[in-house]
Write a protein that binds this DNA or RNA. Structure first.
Lengths: 209, 209
DNA sequence: GGTTTATTGTTATTATTTTATCAAAAAAAG
DNA sequence: CTTTTTTTGATAAAATAATAACAATAAACC
């Protein structure tokens, strides 16, 4: 599927969004080229690591010059497959779902919000982001007729697994999971967890150091 | 500061919240002991890794028996310094701030929400979580008189750095940062980032694999 | 055009993390 | 009470990741 033959390690992949962010910012400031050393000082990494990282998927730099910001950004965009569009739905129209629905950045990068679903009769019918919240009863039909690629789960822990099973059975292949539990999904489904409690606990650890 | 002499690597620390979660769940189900093998299959890790991890901060296991769930949980709780209380504030009373304010889990683990702040006149005065939203103008005095340990930043990217600087100057030592930018803070301040866009981009990568 | 400087890509080294192995200890079984 | 089984803690090995070093190349300068 990927258009880059060299395999990129997961450690590097996890850093790519950050590179992408910094390169986008540089581009907005009309900066055309940057050296690994400059980028390192900007991002708080070592120049060596940056060169290793960027070289794991190709020779986008030029000796004595550095990296072309726009070119490198586009390359990373391709690796992260942000040059395609994704249809997504948010499940759970509470505050978290609402917050995500308003992320302008998602749409800008090709992740299109197609629907928001909830069980609460008070939430159903309200407008969240750009869409009207539908009842969960309509979920099955909606996924089937809208080619949904990504489900963003913003539901309570108690129902997280149930919902995950439901959407994967309907063909959703990617889940961005805000529910604080680990999901059990088929092997062809990918899950990315955003566990806020875990982050808080890492913070309390660091505070105690 | 830490009551455990052996140093715990950051890789392990990042896994501790997950151990803590699973052990809490086991305890709720009245399970008293567990072996590294059982826990491994539950958590999707290897038994060897679990033994290494747990052994990096002490001998909580017993040969031929396994680990005592309650005891191990309490040990991890101490390492994560979840046996103390923290006063926290949320800055930004939008949907994200609202969502976090309603996380019951935070209070249960000793992270007490003392205030929510916003600049929007329509938000100021509304009730979020257990508190009434105050205007940002009141932030300085509030932090000084309430011994705030943690600031949870749910503000737009444009003002993130400004707010971070403001709270650190007032003595806040920990920031849970939901604003999509890297914060520049004094070296005695710790930041834990929750970057939702980065997580989404990791997901699009995985979808393309 | 030749020389100097900057900067990459690559290789080598070091550090860290994960996995495997196994003796020692405790529990369970007989 | 002895033997077998379980399971840890510790050590060793393998894999992965980060840093350092440097030759090769391009740009900048004179």
């Amino acid at each position: 599927m990927h258009r880059f033959s060299k395999k990129v390690s997961m450690t590097v992949v996890k850093r790519l969004p950050k590179y992408y962010q910094y390169l986008s910012d540089l581009q907005l400031n009309d900066i055309e080229k940057i050296s690994s050393r400059e980028l390192a000082s900007l991002m708080g990494l070592t120049a060596s690591q940056i060169r290793q990282d960027l070289n794991s998927f190709g020779g986008y730099g030029q000796q004595g010059y550095g990296y072309n910001v726009g070119e490198l950004k586009e390359a990373i965009k391709e690796i992260l497959v942000l040059d395609s569009e994704y249809n997504c739905i948010i499940i759970g129209g509470g505050n978290m779902g609402h917050a995500i629905a308003n992320y302008e950045r998602f749409k800008r990068e090709g992740v299109i919000l197609k629907g928001v679903f909830d069980v609460d009769p008070l939430t159903v019918g309200t407008v969240v982001g750009s869409v009207v919240v539908k009842h969960m009863d309509e979920l099955d039909g909606f996924i089937e007729s809208n080619e949904i690629d990504i489900a963003i789960l913003c539901v309570p822990r108690e129902v997280g697994q149930k919902v995950a099973t439901q959407v994967t059975e309907l063909g959703v292949k990617g889940i961005l999971n805000f529910s604080p539990l680990d999901l059990d999904v088929p092997s062809d489904v990918v899950v990315e967890n955003v566990n806020i409690t875990d982050s808080l606990f890492t913070l309390t650890y660091l505070l105690g150091e």
